[in-house]
Each structure stands twice: as structure tokens, then as C-alpha cells.
């Protein structure tokens, strides 16, 4: 693990943003040119959404990986989180502009369809997190308040996974795997949280 950490250390964090942007643009290009199959709208919507979930899982895994496996991704955690937000945003835009297409129908879906509602709620929770993912905000809010605000990641991640579980037809394993992973990653934080609470009491 020390060797992996040594390999990761010289990689600048901006590479995560560049790789994320290149990935998103590449998928869009594939959609334009027939590389995503017969229904590029559905394909792009689902690909962006799933990548967002994968990045959220990776971001949530950073702390446990560091604690239990001594794999140090902490330096990349902010970039992973912000990139995840951009994939959620891209997922939302493809859904709203290319799939549903009319504003009234977008609004109707958000209000009427529970799986869209919880997806939107998760997206809304991520907005303040993306806006405060910079050193200036950490200083401005103070470390403790900033940390508390960023605990919103946890409900947002659960909402994102539920959104996926809720949208599929029939009994499908894949969304349940994401939900289980996210719940397990949150569970690794419980002993810490309990300790904190005891310390405060």
C-alpha cells in the first residue's frame, strides 16, 4: 500500500477534474455519433447518473480506505466530490433538456414522481457542498461548521442510491449493490460518531 500511496503522491488533484470532464465530453461525443446505441438519450442519462454514483461511493470510501487499508486518497477527496457533483448536474441536464424536454413536464415529474423527487432532493443537497468545496469557504465557515455542512453528503448519497433502486423495473441487483455499498460506507463512520458524541456529552 505504501508503494501505491507513493505513486499517487505526485499526481496533482486537477487531473481528477480533467479526467472527469474528458470522460463526460467523450460520452457526449459517443452519443452524438451513434456510439451509445439506438437510444443515446437514455444511454447518456444513465451513464452520467451511474458515474456520479460511482464517484460518490469512491468519495465516501476515501476515509475508510485510509483508516482500514492505509490507502491514502484523502488529497483527492474534494476533487472526487466536486466531479461527482458535475456528473449529477450533467445527468440532470440530459434528463431535463434532452429527455423530458419541456419545463412544465420537468416540474410535473419533480413534484409528482417520488423517484424524481428524491433524486432532485439529493441533487439540491449537493449544491451547497459544491459551492463550499474550496479553501476560502472552509476558512470562512470555520472547520467545524464546514464539516457539519458536508455531512449532507451522507443523506445525498443515500437519496441517490434510492433514486436508482426506485427507477428500475423488476428485481435488479445492481442498484441494490450501490445502496448496500453506500450504507456500509456510512456504517464505518458510526463508531467514530458515537465516540464524538460521548466526548461532547
Amino acid at each position: 500500500m505504501q508503494r501505491v500511496n507513493a505513486l499517487l503522491r505526485p499526481i496533482p488533484t486537477w487531473t481528477v477534474y480533467v479526467a472527469g470532464a474528458a470522460w463526460a465530453v467523450w460520452l457526449f461525443y459517443l452519443g452524438l455519433t451513434g456510439g451509445l446505441g439506438a437510444d443515446p438519450v437514455e444511454a447518456l442519462e444513465h451513464r452520467y447518473g451511474k458515474i456520479a454514483l460511482q464517484l460518490i461511493v469512491l468519495g465516501l470510501a476515501a476515509t475508510p480506505l485510509c483508516r482500514f487499508a492505509r490507502l491514502n486518497l484523502m488529497k483527492f477527496r474534494r476533487a472526487i466530490g466536486v466531479t461527482a457533483f458535475f456528473f449529477v448536474l450533467a445527468h440532470f441536464l440530459v434528463w431535463a433538456l434532452l429527455d423530458v424536454q419541456t419545463l412544465s413536464a420537468v416540474w410535473a415529474d419533480i413534484v409528482k414522481r417520488p423517484y424524481v423527487t428524491i433524486g432532485m432532493a439529493g441533487f439540491a443537497l449537493l449544491i451547497p457542498l459544491a459551492l463550499t468545496s474550496n479553501d476560502w469557504s472552509v476558512r470562512r465557515l470555520g472547520a467545524m461548521a464546514w464539516r457539519k455542512l458536508h455531512w449532507l453528503t451522507y443523506p445525498a448519497a443515500v437519496l441517490g442510491a434510492l433514486h436508482y433502486v426506485w427507477l428500475v423495473k423488476g428485481f435488479q441487483i445492481e442498484p441494490l449493490i450501490y445502496l448496500t455499498l453506500i450504507l456500509a460506507l456510512l456504517a464505518t463512520r458510526l463508531p467514530q460518531a458515537r465516540k464524538r458524541r460521548r466526548a461532547m456529552a
Binding site: L32, A38, D39, V41, D99, V100, A105, D109, R113, W166
Partner: peptide, 20 residues
């Protein structure tokens, strides 16, 4: 459908910018 509208449909084959 309880989870989505059936008022419109997307014709497959029209690419990324196909109107519903």
C-alpha cells in the same frame, strides 16, 4: 404510469436531439 408520464414518447433512431 405511476413513475412516469405516458403522454409523450421518444421515437428511437432520431439521435440525441430528437423531439418527443
Amino acid at each position: 404510469h405511476p413513475r412516469w408520464s405516458q403522454a409523450t414518447e421518444r421515437r428511437i433512431g432520431g439521435g440525441l436531439f430528437q423531439r418527443r
